[in-house]
Design a protein around this nucleic acid. Sequence first.
DNA 1: GCAGTGACTAAGCGCTTGCTTAGCATGGTG
DNA 2: CACCATGCTAAGCAAGCGCTTAGTCACTGC
Lengths: 209, 209
Amino acid sequence: MTSKPIADLWPTLPGGADARPEAAYRLLQAAVESFAERGFHATTTRDIATGAGMSPAALYIHYPSKAALLAEISRAGHAATLELVRAAVAGEDGPEARMRRLVEEFTAWHARARTVGRVVNYELHALPEDAYAVVAALRLDIEREVTALIEAGVAAGVFEVAEVRTAARAVTSLGIDVSRWYTDRSSETPEELGRRYGELVLRMLGARL
Amino acid sequence: MTSKPIADLWPTLPGGADARPEAAYRLLQAAVESFAERGFHATTTRDIATGAGMSPAALYIHYPSKAALLAEISRAGHAATLELVRAAVAGEDGPEARMRRLVEEFTAWHARARTVGRVVNYELHALPEDAYAVVAALRLDIEREVTALIEAGVAAGVFEVAEVRTAARAVTSLGIDVSRWYTDRSSETPEELGRRYGELVLRMLGARL
DNA sequence: GCAGTGACTAAGCGCTTGCTTAGCATGGTG
DNA sequence: CACCATGCTAAGCAAGCGCTTAGTCACTGC
């Protein structure tokens, strides 16, 4: 975990001024890594502050609580995933090409950003209620995009599935679970894995290749 | 969570004497439910003891530590899963029928026993090192069974996949992730879900249906 | 009748937790 | 220069943690 796995999630806001001072960014990064490795509850505020090179109290200048850090990570991670899904659908023509691109990028993201992915998918239960509501809405939007794409494919006669919702679950499931098992030592690059999963999913959906 | 979701995991030993006194069993059950709902670290020994209808100290008569409870749950859950996989392979003829049965039962188990499944698959990082080694060996055995089955299918010409290991990952991934998202409110029964996933997986593996 | 045993509880110990308080150096502004 | 906001640290508080201790009680064997 030497690189900056979250660099693209919190861009500087337009206008020239840094939307998020560097110290707050370092706290986010340290929190992502600790939450992913040990889980939210096993991570102490001292872990996070130390990881960001600060004293424990400094955390509270930038975030009101440990849970607020989790909420921000979860919100940004989900927003990025939804964006990725929509971009894949908008960037191709036809259900087959769209689904292939969607799975390729969804899978590669969950491999590349597996630390964020773990927090996003496996620490939901630790979110305060209001933050959970925001995130649940984003998850519903993602599910709806995938379901709509499969429905479009079925309507166009290029996919053939018994149950659209079950198929949609299977598609997202495959991608999400990548963040659980993928490691630096995995033999495939995120992009290779994405291509192979894209192939498997298209077959699963009954596309004639 | 009204039923006893773990009843078949800790049978009474032969010989007439209860291998595990009822109180220890109640502690296991309470621990499974708490660990699954809140995670290992967010669960207190008081939660578990209260859930089993005892005072906090009673836990330590039956188990040496909170981690020992997790270790026992994880070991038994993995052993049961491996058993299920081997039974599916032994109970059918031909790679296709074996794979269908394997996915059906693997999936249904992860839906039915989702509380145990969550602990088994998402609390690995909280295991003490020695308990982790035991469990890792069981996980490797499960992976090997699935990989061998796909290889047999490829050799027999009934499956066709680009990369056996990636395909094996996808098969187990689909089943494991069920324990993350399946709830009482899910519209499909575990058995229905198993049949549908069996169908999807066979197509994914290139079986001509 | 009574010592011994096993399952349990009440109380609490030492420690760690999330978070607060008080104070300090720095740098921009009049 | 004084003033003060900003970003931080040192110290520590109240609460809750895993686990221990000391003792109670029902039951067993002799």
